[in-house]
């Protein structure tokens, strides 16, 4: 049982790390803002979900499980909203630089 849980965690966290690495690689290597947005926001949220999935068997009680799941849902919501905000701001900048 213990072995199975460990294997499950290693698989899930390993896959999550892979997605994080791919997201960062996309952020560094892709040519323009919109392709970077596309690579980063999806890969990152999936990576976090997989890491949390790997951590769930080790959570102490049901409340902790609920909290971890809610963190992931909040990140999903916030990530999607943030991606839309960045894209909209970049599209309708009227020649005005973001952060300027």
């Amino acid at each position: 049982m213990e072995m199975t849980l460990q294997l499950w965690s290693m698989l899930c966290v390993g896959a999550g790390l892979f997605f994080f690495a791919v997201g960062t690689l996309g952020l560094l290597r892709l040519p323009d803002l919109f392709s970077r947005l596309h690579a980063l926001t999806k890969a990152d949220n999936l990576g976090l979900g997989l890491v949390i999935l790997g951590l769930l068997p080790w959570a102490g009680d049901g409340f902790q499980v609920l909290k971890l799941t809610l963190i992931w849902l909040l990140v999903l919501l916030g990530g999607a909203t943030g991606a839309h905000l960045i894209a909209k701001r970049a599209l309708r900048a009227d020649g005005e630089e973001m952060l300027e």
């Binding site: 999550g16 994080f20 997201g23 960062t24 952020l27 803002l33 970077r36 947005l37 980063l40 926001t41 990152d44 949220n45 990576g47 976090l48 890491v51 949390i52 963190i71 990140v75 990530g79 943030g82 991606a83 960045i86 701001r89 970049a90 630089e97 973001m98 952060l99 300027e100």
Partner: peptide, 19 residues
């Protein structure tokens, strides 16, 4: 190069920091 890229970096750091 643009401000949008920097903000994307903030998002990456937030998500990875949570993990």
């Amino acid at each position: 190069p643009s401000g949008g890229d920097r903000i994307l970096g903030v998002q990456l750091l937030g998500t990875a920091g949570i993990a």
